[in-house]
Nucleic acid binder design. Structure first.
Lengths: 165, 165
DNA sequence: GCTAGTAGGTAGCCAGGCTAGTATCCAGGC
DNA sequence: GCCTGGATACTAGCCTGGCTACCTACTAGC
């Protein structure tokens, strides 16, 4: 009863295989996030926020509550609570912006950096290894496929044009 | 501030591209689910459940509350409430199993079938078209890559072995 | 130096999870 | 035939983590 659905518009078995692989990947990713978050005693959103802050810092930038809200798709009010939780747990710190005192700069603590690296570093390496295992001549096709999928999902509003006709 | 992070373990640009494409795809998928669910005035979990029930039916099977709970990774108690919501909204019906009267059979209403087809049919077709656009000789590599990723994510516990050493 | 706009926080509400406990039912041992 | 154990779903009540609405502090433009 947990077997995959085969109701794709798949004429060709190789196409059906790809679509099924996509479906499986989405589930695996979701489950992994749940497990990792649970392992760090936090919810999935908080985990995402933490990753985001660290990613911004890795690029030499500063994360602000408003950015985090936008990135996560939640309100700034909810983000305030989120930051309260992550501050209380010692993963993030809030400091006021040096010049604009309306603004707040969110920074990950060394502890958060360490913990995330310990838990995700190995996984990222493994993912890179899997990417390297793709034959060089097919790599462009793989990225192009994923990019095309992303473009499509981004453009999808979820309503068939028929409905409003 | 919403630019991608480039802290992958990427020696090779083509590898980095793949990993970045994966990251982007995950976000696009998540956002799409939120939009579609919101468009149908339901939460993401309920939407998933509905898709699951319909998928099971497409394969000629019957969905049971317990299966749904397992598929979604939530308790059977929460599933009861979920089924209450989806019954109230006219998307699902509950009937007792003909022979085993402990069991409940969940079925999607024609309305749910129609609505989902309207909203997702076009998207699935477009996804199939994107898969067909992958050069035939690279299709195996694409599915293999995604499968390997899924395998890895499924196996990942999120704790580095160093931690316990 | 007002006033409009912006960033973030506070208060209070509600949806949607959870655990614990309950009712019903099937299957197996006697 | 009739208990008993395990399966299946539901109910009651709690808690987390969202939301809206409103408020404060601050900057910038005139």
């Amino acid at each position: 009863m947990t077997e995959p659905a085969h109701f794709w518009y798949a004429d060709d078995p190789s196409v059906a295989e790809i679509l099924e692989a996509v479906r499986r990947f989405r589930r695996a990713d979701e489950d992994m996030r749940r497990r990792i978050s649970a392992g760090m005693r936090m919810n999935v959103t908080d985990m995402s926020a933490l990753q985001y802050v660290i990613a911004v810092e890795q690029r030499g930038g500063h994360a602000h509550p408003g950015d985090i809200a936008g990135h996560l798709g939640i309100s700034t009010a909810s983000t305030t609570k989120l930051l309260d939780r992550l501050s209380a747990s010692g993963h993030l710190t809030r400091t006021t912006h040096p010049t604009d005192r309306r603004s707040v700069v969110v920074a990950a603590t060394p502890h958060a950096h360490t913990e995330l690296r310990e838990r995700l570093g190995r996984m990222h390496e493994a993912m890179a290894a899997i990417a390297r295992a793709v034959p060089p001549q097919a790599r462009g096709d793989v990225s192009a496929f994923l990019d095309a999928m992303s473009d499509h999902l981004d453009s999808e509003r979820g309503v068939a044009p028929l409905t409003s006709a």
